[in-house]
């Protein structure tokens, strides 16, 4: 079986890549980082990441960098998610379970409102 499942997929990808490249403007990017250490994974970080990606996809949010990182060393607060809006300070949230993701993405990423009572202070 070839590395790429079907030529159609690759063609689709190529066309889409071309389209996005044309649309691309050099704007600041929002960065979302999820702690994916052992504890994070055990606490459900993969599902949290999945929920974040779902939100990005269904709301069609462009130019958002989503990254994973190792253990951030903060006990008992996993899954941890850090959001950095363009030109803003990073904000770290604790216990970001999938049920909280929609609100977090809507308020912080879309509307730029920090959800103060969920922010971790370090």
């Amino acid at each position: 079986m070839p590395a790429i499942k079907s030529l159609d997929d690759l063609k689709r990808l190529r066309e889409e890549a071309q389209r996005v490249r044309e649309l691309k403007v050099n704007e600041g990017k929002t960065e979302i980082v999820i702690s994916m250490g052992t504890v994070g994974i055990a606490a459900g970080a993969r599902e949290t990441l999945k929920a974040i990606l779902n939100f990005i996809e269904t709301r069609n949010l462009q130019s958002i960098i989503v990254k994973q990182t190792g253990n951030l060393g903060i006990e008992g607060q996993d899954p941890l998610v850090q959001i950095t809006l363009p030109g803003a300070e990073k904000v770290l949230y604790g216990k970001v379970h999938p049920s909280f993701v929609d609100q977090l993405m809507q308020d912080h990423v879309c509307d730029g409102k920090v959800i103060a009572d969920k922010v971790l202070k370090i």
Partner: peptide
Amino acid sequence: ILLTEPSIMPI
């Protein structure tokens, strides 16, 4: 291009 662009991710 970011792999997380909403039109790329589903592919």
